[in-house]
Amino acid sequence: MCDSITLYGVKKVYDSRNGPVHAIGPADLSIRKGEFVSFLGPSGCGKSTLVLMVAGLLPPTEGEIRIDGVVVNEPRTDVGIVFQTPVLVDWRSVLGNVLLQVELRGLDPAQYRAHAVELLESVGLGEFLKQRPYELSGGMQQRTAFCRALLHDPPIVLMDEPLGALDAMTRTRLRDDLEKLWLGSPKSVLFVTHDISEAVQLSDRVVVITPRPGRVEREITVDLPHPRDFDVRQSPEFLGYVKDISDIFMQYGVI
């Protein structure tokens, strides 16, 4: 399969009031079409920065990013983004928020309605289409955000710690939801997290990033069958991956 996203010596240095902050890089990496890649690293190592650069929302200081061979130098509209918080708007219902994705693109929401409902039903929100975001729990809001990121069927999905703000129980449930969504229509996914077992459960490949300035420390291919349900997660292989990655962070003194 061919590459979907490629990073060539990508580096970001922020100009802050207290002088330049070297956030990440230089990083070289490629993500194949349909591959689920996790970026795993401690807080502040530049993961969000990387996501924004891939989306074309932030220019790299050095190096370049290519998507399907084309240099990213303006905001990409063919990506779906999920942020750490749901970022829904209160003046629209759950369904309305999902449809906002296509309405903003100038597309006819009526044509996407069925697909939106289908997506929402697949994550258990079928009965909440008409509710407003503030009437939902945090986990339900984040699921709505997943659906919004997928509605326009983007070939690339960027997720910046989408489960970060949720409690452990909800995280586990949403992980399964995410896995299901991804198995339903494989896309190139760049998934940011600092939860090791989350990365192992979801990813084809885990990219371990060092503390700031973030560099690619190691890439680990996770060779386990999907869906990685409860049994798989208890298997020695799964736990082996988790331990290997934990060891890396131990060495850095992060955990």
Partner: peptide, 27 residues
């Protein structure tokens, strides 16, 4: 308008009029 909502808006490539009517104005 929140940073992330602005990012979302930008990533849809919305025309400024559409973005204004559907997001910026109500917000």
């Amino acid at each position: 308008l929140g940073t992330e909502l602005t990012y979302f808006l930008t990533s849809t490539g919305a025309r400024s009029k559409t973005g204004f009517l559907k997001v910026r104005m109500p917000a």
